[in-house]
Simulated assay, not measured.
Amino acid sequence: MDVFMQLWSEFGFPMTVTLYLLYRIEKKLDTVNSSIQRLNIPLQKRHVS
């Protein structure tokens, strides 16, 4: 139990911050991905015509 508490006290805060930032970045990457997919549709129609 002491080992776990020592590990948590050393790495708990950085792990929490990392997980929070990864969660926020994931949302933004989903938005960027959907925007790129929406841009690709008009380009495909334009290229085919």
Results as ranks from 00 to 15, higher is better:
16 T>D: 09
32 V>N: 12
11 F>Q: 07
29 L>I: 14
48 V>C: 07
24 R>H: 14
11 F>Y: 13
36 I>R: 09
8 W>S: 07
4 F>N: 03
35 S>T: 03
31 T>H: 14
25 I>M: 14
28 K>L: 15
38 R>C: 03
25 I>V: 14
29 L>Y: 13
26 E>N: 10
25 I>L: 14
44 Q>D: 11
10 E>T: 05
8 W>R: 06
23 Y>F: 11
19 L>W: 09
8 W>I: 02
3 V>N: 02
8 W>A: 11
25 I>W: 14
10 E>R: 08
13 F>M: 08
46 R>L: 11
21 L>Y: 12
31 T>Y: 14
21 L>E: 12
21 L>A: 11
42 P>L: 03
19 L>Y: 09
46 R>S: 10
18 T>W: 01
27 K>I: 13
36 I>W: 09
28 K>Q: 15
38 R>K: 07
45 K>G: 03
15 M>Q: 09
14 P>F: 06
6 Q>R: 01
10 E>M: 07
24 R>D: 15
19 L>K: 08
36 I>T: 10
34 S>H: 10
25 I>T: 13
4 F>I: 01
16 T>S: 11
45 K>P: 00
20 Y>S: 10
6 Q>H: 02
42 P>Q: 03
38 R>Y: 05
26 E>H: 12
43 L>Q: 09
42 P>M: 01
1 M>E: 08
20 Y>V: 03
12 G>S: 03
27 K>F: 12
25 I>E: 12
33 N>V: 04
39 L>A: 05
21 L>V: 08
11 F>I: 01
6 Q>E: 10
35 S>N: 07
44 Q>R: 09
29 L>M: 15
6 Q>A: 10
48 V>F: 13
47 H>I: 07
25 I>A: 14
27 K>H: 14
37 Q>R: 08
30 D>N: 15
6 Q>C: 00
10 E>Y: 02
49 S>N: 09
20 Y>I: 05
2 D>H: 01
43 L>I: 09
28 K>C: 14
27 K>S: 12
5 M>Q: 05
40 N>R: 07
20 Y>D: 04
5 M>V: 00
10 E>G: 01
21 L>P: 02
1 M>Y: 05
24 R>I: 10
12 G>W: 05
12 G>N: 01
33 N>A: 15
42 P>C: 01
28 K>G: 11
13 F>N: 05
48 V>L: 13
1 M>Q: 05
21 L>C: 08
43 L>Y: 08
6 Q>D: 07
4 F>W: 03
38 R>I: 02
1 M>R: 02
45 K>A: 10
8 W>H: 10
18 T>F: 06
43 L>R: 09
20 Y>K: 11
36 I>P: 02
33 N>T: 12
47 H>D: 10
21 L>G: 04
24 R>K: 15
